[in-house]
Design a protein around this nucleic acid. Structure first.
Lengths: 225, 225
DNA sequence: GAGTGGTCTAGACCACTGT
DNA sequence: CAGTGGTCTAGACCACTCC
């Protein structure tokens, strides 16, 4: 009965009971281990998991504290669009609409200092209906192999997850009104609310790719707590 | 040079190099430890982290496989709205607009079988301008103490994180058009695109609270890969 | 039944950082 | 400088599950 999950529960219980209020420094690992009758490694495992969840804050030498404002975190599983469509039992389609070494718009200049870029525009379809519109820029300086990839056969996303080392990035979601062109494409009224995503992927501090996605009307973004 | 991060990198390198294609079963922990010259616990730590990231799939007896389609995951830190506003250097305001034991709408009936509910409507403000509109239902069966809480002084979210044990839940984001009432509240045109969130929080399989949030125009939802 | 990952232990050393 | 968490080790036992 000395599992790390029990240790975790014991800590949670004391926080909930008010014995350890927000901001309070809790005993160090060695003391907790002695008190709970387990090895320090077990306590470490339990506390590390709680810190990842945002319930605790840990710093060397400074010790472990109860987070002042417990920040809840949710996980978003970002599916490859093809998998998302097929999981819904619909037929996936992909059409490459544009591919060229276009000059980089000024707005994106800060992201890609080197400038040698590949520009792709594509449409993902579900049962032959437009599903997601994709406007992507890929740095040929960071990923030279992209110049020779056949993006008409395989979507850029799928090619990149298999061929590009990725370390970090961000996604920003916003709600926006459909332009006239988007309204035509999705068969909706101009001004309809659409979900947009702007995704930047980096490796070693250099931007690998930036993609602007526009989802069909009614798209739902689901996250698990 | 036998840290778990080095083990992790070694595994990633082999996957990238194509030695271990998607779906391939990789050597077991003991063999990998011997080959890389470290303890099995170190290999375990590395592989467990990669499995959490979605790059590997692990099952007892069946071994460890490279995920067929590496599902990238992003983390959303869900801030307490007050902290979000204050972090932007703006003054936070909170107004409780409605509080009553209203009858549960039929649409929400399946979520709360027991039916004794508290209904709250509130507005979060930044620099006196509407920031987020909140429409919340709290189960008094699951959280009886909520009946006596002073939600005029402290937002329901902050009260709940401090007083309600929470195990899991979901958030669903959508883009929608502003209703006439929302347009008046936010000072925007009717039909303006707004980000909405529908959040359900559970404990022990019972729904604790359900909240519908409507964000001011231009809200950006940012996630880190 | 046997092989795999999941976990625990006791001890040790290291890295960081507050004082 | 000293105290804390971060990590590694070698060994052990257990839980699950495929064969």
């Amino acid at each position: 009965m000395t599992g790390w999950q029990q240790v975790q529960q014991a800590v949670i219980d004391r926080i909930r009971a008010g014995h350890w209020p927000p901001g309070h420094q809790i005993p160090n690992e060695a003391d907790l281990a002695r008190e709970l009758g387990c090895a320090r490694a077990t306590v470490n495992r339990a506390l590390r998991a709680l810190a990842e969840e945002g319930l605790l804050e840990r710093r060397r030498r400074a010790g472990t504290r109860v987070a002042p404002l417990p920040v809840r975190q949710a996980r978003l599983r970002i599916p490859v669009i093809r998998a998302e469509v097929e999981a819904a039992g619909r037929r996936y389609g992909y059409r490459l609409l544009h591919r060229a070494r276009d000059p980089l718009p000024a707005a994106l200049r800060p992201l890609f200092p080197d400038g040698e870029m590949l520009h792709l525009i594509a449409l993902h379809e579900a049962d032959c209906a437009p599903y997601v519109h994709e406007d992507r820029w890929i740095s040929l300086t960071v990923i030279p192999a992209a110049a020779g990839a056949d993006f008409a056969a395989l979507s850029a996303n799928e090619w990149l997850v298999a061929n590009a080392p990725v370390s970090d990035g961000e996604i920003a979601y916003t709600a926006g009104a459909a332009t006239a062109a988007e309204a035509r494409m999705f068969g909706c009224a101009e001004g309809t609310s659409l979900m947009r995503a702007d995704r930047i992927t980096r490796h070693d501090g250099r931007t690998v790719t930036r993609v602007a996605l526009t989802f069909r009307p009614g798209h739902v973004l689901t996250l698990k707590l």
